[in-house]
Write a protein that binds this DNA or RNA. Structure first.
Ligand code: SF4
Length: 356
RNA sequence: GGCGGC
DNA sequence: GCCGCCAACATA
């Protein structure tokens, strides 16, 4: 814990950054401790009640802290416009997410974004199902399950999921046949029918091991279930270089699908080259998606983020469940976006966030 | 897809 | 033929 603070001092000097430490205490209570640039500190804790999730407790903590900060140091930015969008970004990117109650991101994603997202951020296994659905206007059971839960996991709301499957499926059947045959299952996966369980999307292990795709199925893991040449073709069609393809195939042939997938991620996002060591390990399709989004929105937001507040996660805090967030209060450069977006510092932070 | 009901 | 119900579980 000593070098944690050392790291903070080095990278985020106390006079330039406001430090906000939050901790979700047992049962969802939360505490805040903030160090302002003028040296003063704020400390406070709140009872949130037993029903409160870890996620919410931390969010509340940071909101509270930012409110104090805003009233003290940034009187110009009030409740509107700039601060709140940052907060929503905050909760998604810099806090421990709570998937069991997952208040995460619901409503942010709509059916018509899926095609775009499938190209930018879907892992191959899901991108493949998406493609199959576009072509066949239909998906077999296994694919519906794997894909449907994944979509829920990325934050697609139930009604949007229904819309997505309906608009595609009804290109090959009438609307009431669809409702009769498939709508129940979709609602069930969202925990709205029967036992009402909010199922966690399948992890890589399950996708690779259980229920191998038969002819006509689109599910499974491409790195395990695709024919070698078909996989090569798909990967290079997606923009991976010759060398990159070979590197990936090496892992694939060794049976290390999740490493191959990680390498694919790195190459497709341009954060490593074909010769360098693989830094990530993909354990869950939704993890692939989150990481991809983190990278992309990091770039996108560098040019869109309201100037004045910049938030960086110092993911060095090894202790307990504590997380720490620094808020920079200087004006940021007017045009960051001239050179494709990222400063070296941002790149470092992103890479730190993603690998492990 | 499986199980179950009529 | 009509219909309901089930499976899952990464991480900071
Ligand atoms: S490794 Fe996991 S995420 Fe990557 S493709 Fe296979 S299953 Fe999907």
């Amino acid at each position: 814990m000593d070098f944690t603070n050392k790291h903070l001092d080095k990278k985020y000097p106390i006079k330039e950054w406001i430090r906000i430490y939050t901790d979700a205490v047992r049962r969802g209570d939360c505490g805040v401790y903030a160090t302002l640039s003028d040296g003063t500190t704020l400390g406070r804790s709140f009872a949130r009640g037993m029903r409160c999730t870890n996620y919410k407790a931390e969010t509340e903590a940071i909101k509270e802290a930012l409110n104090k900060v805003a009233s003290r140091a940034l009187p110009s930015m009030e409740e509107d416009g700039r601060l709140l969008p940052m907060l929503s970004g905050l909760s998604k990117r810099y806090l421990g997410q709570d998937y069991s109650v997952r208040k995460t991101n619901v409503g942010a994603i709509t059916a018509d974004m899926i095609d775009m997202l499938s190209k930018k951020s879907f892992p191959l296994c899901m991108q493949n199902v998406h493609l199959a659905m576009k072509q066949n206007h239909h998906l077999r059971h296994g694919s519906r399950l794997q894909y449907g839960l994944f979509l829920k996991g990325i934050g697609l709301p139930l009604d949007e999921a229904l819309k997505l499957f309906r608009t595609e499926f009804t290109k090959g059947m009438d609307v009431d046949t669809f409702d009769k045959k498939y709508s129940y299952g979709i609602r069930y996966n969202y925990g709205k029918e029967g036992k009402k369980t909010d199922y966690t999307p399948f992890g890589c292990m399950k996708i690779i091991m259980n229920n191998p795709p038969a002819a006509g199925d689109a599910h499974g893991c491409p790195f395990r279930h695709f024919d070698t040449d078909f996989l090569k073709q798909r990967i290079s069609a997606n923009g991976v270089s010759k060398d990159g393809v070979e590197t990936i195939m090496k892992y694939t042939k060794g049976g290390h699908c999740q490493v191959a997938c990680a390498k694919y991620f790195e190459l497709i996002h341009g954060i490593s080259d074909s010769s360098s060591e693989v830094e990530m390990f993909i354990q869950h399709p939704n993890q692939y998606f989150e990481n991809s989004q983190k990278l992309i929105s990091g770039v996108g937001k560098a040019s869109t983020t309201p100037r004045g507040v910049k938030v960086v996660n110092s993911s060095q805090n090894s202790m307990l469940s504590q997380s720490s967030v620094d808020v920079k209060q200087e004006q940021m450069d007017e045009d960051l976006d001239t050179d494709m977006g990222l400063t070296q510092e941002q790149l470092d932070n992103l890479e730190q966030d993603i690998s492990l």
